[in-house]
Every structure is written in structure tokens, then in C-alpha cells.
Simulated assay, not measured.
Amino acid sequence: MTAIAPQVPTVSALPSAEELDRALRDASPAEIIAAALKTVGRDKLALVSSFGTESATLLKVMADVDPAIPVIFLDTGWLFEETLAYRDTLIAKLGLKDVRSIKPAEETLSRDDPDRDLWFSDPDACCRIRKVEPLARALKPFSAWLNGRKRFQGSARADIPVVEDDGARLKFNPFANVSREEIEAIFTLAKLPRHPLVASGFLSVGCMPCTSRTAEGEDSRAGRWRGRAKTECGIHTMKVS
């Protein structure tokens, strides 16, 4: 009589990005974050934040769901001192329990940007070594990540889904459907502090050399890489696997 091999239980695969997007396309930001948390678990979920001008709102919603979700912050070496101070302010205000400040590899900076002028000659390469590559390292332990892109920001962001596949992991966009008015409502209701540079006319803040003030009537991201065709740093357009 031939012995029958026992059935080995298989670990169920994660739902596909398409399945999750269909299920969550009309969900609130808090519901989307809770669904991401349930899907992969806290140890496999990270939120990536620039601690920029609108970042407090997503961080607030996340903190209400679970303040211990890891937060990845890319400290490029070119950030405004005001951004670093704002990071610390929000950590204290929201009770964030696991903010990880990630820096570029020193050997890469020494090799590719020894004079700190790569931002001028090749801004895409500068973003790659200071943002894209460090983020790829930081995301390796995770199966999914959250970010703050919004469709109203236009350009490449106008048609983003609520959930997508970045090539290596699930990528949740909890604020894909929110409006500018809803962002302002979160700031007001939660009494969130503003980024210190907003009062000086900076409506979107990135690295110092590539950020300028925004004139009245301009798009909020018009001050990023002004005068260049570039509109994204690369972490949302390049593969970060």
C-alpha cells in the first residue's frame, strides 16, 4: 500500500494590489491604513514621510490608527533645518513611536558627489543617491508602504490608485482621494502645527537647493526643481526594490 504524503499547509499569498484597490477605492484614509496594517502586519508596514508641508495630516491619521507603525524619513543631507525641527515637533505632538531617519551612504556621496554640486549638474542622479537608493535599503524588511501622494497634486499623480504594486511590495496611497479642503480640515480639527517655512511662501518643501517659494496662483509644487522639466524626486517613479 502506497503511503500518502501529508498535505503541507501553504502560506496564503497577500492579496493583489488590484484586489485591494477595488476594495478600498472609496475607503477613508484611516480605513486604508487599517487595511494595510491588517494585510501585512505592523512589522511589515512602513510609512514614508518627508515631514513636508502637508505631512502632518497623514502622520496624524496614521497615529490615530497605530502610532507604532514605522515611519521612514529620508535625511538627504540637503534638508532645511526647519524640516528637521518640524520632524521632531511632529514626533512629540503625535506620539510617533518608531521614526527612522535614513541617510545616504557616505561612500556613495564621496564617490558620486564629493563637491556637493551634483544637484546642479544632474538632479536626477542627486535624487537617486540621496533618496531612491537609501529608501530601497530602508524598505527591504517591509512588504508594504504608505505614502502621502494626492491626485489633486496633478502631473504624474493625477491618476494614482489607492493601492498599487511598486515591483517589490504593495504601495498604499491613503490620501489619493482627499481634497485640499480635507487636508486643511485635518490641520484645523487636530490643531496641527504647520511647517515653519509655509509662512515664508514655501508650499512644498524638499531639499534646499531645489526648493523655492511659490508665487500666488502657482501650483503648490511649482517651487520644486523650478526651471527644470523634473517634477518628481524618483522614489515614486523609479523602482525601489
Rank of each mutant, 00 (worst) to 15 (best):
N177H: 11
G52Q: 05
L14A: 04
I69N: 00
D43E: 15
P6Y: 00
K150W: 05
A63V: 06
Y86L: 09
D88H: 09
E184A: 15
R87T: 05
V61S: 02
D112F: 12
T211V: 01
S121H: 11
V163Y: 08
G201P: 01
V11S: 12
T188W: 00
F175M: 15
A23Q: 13
A85E: 10
C127G: 08
K60L: 06
K239Q: 13
F142L: 01
E31I: 03
P15L: 00
A23G: 09
A158P: 10
K38L: 14
H236K: 07
N177W: 11
D43C: 02
G52D: 03
H236S: 11
A3V: 14
L37W: 10
I72C: 03
R157L: 08
A105T: 10
L109H: 03
T10E: 13
D219R: 10
R100N: 14
L14V: 03
L37M: 10
V11L: 14
V240P: 01
F80A: 07
E232H: 08
L14E: 04
E18M: 05
R130M: 03
D115K: 12
L139M: 12
S50R: 01
L14K: 04
D113T: 07
P15K: 03
A63R: 08
S16L: 06
L74G: 08
M238E: 15
K239G: 14
R194F: 06
P67S: 03
S212C: 05
T211D: 01
T76V: 06
G95F: 10
A27F: 07
S220H: 09
T89H: 11
G234R: 07
V178D: 10
L197P: 05
L90C: 08
F120P: 00
F120C: 04
A222P: 00
P196F: 00
F51W: 03
S12V: 06
D98Q: 11
P134S: 07
T214I: 06
F142S: 02
T2R: 15
A36K: 05
T53W: 00
D98K: 12
D159K: 15
L170F: 02
E184D: 15
R169F: 02
K131G: 07
R213H: 04
D165L: 06
Q7K: 13
P141M: 14
D112A: 13
A17G: 14
D115H: 13
I186G: 09
I102R: 12
C126M: 09
R221Y: 06
I4W: 04
I91W: 12
A92Q: 15
A190W: 06
H195C: 03
I69C: 06
R100V: 03
I33W: 04
I183E: 12
M1H: 14
A34R: 14
R169H: 08
I160H: 08
A36V: 10
E81D: 15
V132S: 07
N173M: 07
A63P: 00
D75N: 14
V132I: 10
V205E: 03
R149Q: 15
S110H: 14
W145F: 09
S12W: 00
L139Q: 05
F202N: 07
I235Q: 07
V65I: 10
E133L: 13
V71I: 13
R226S: 09
L79E: 03
F142W: 02
L94W: 12
H236R: 08
A199Q: 13
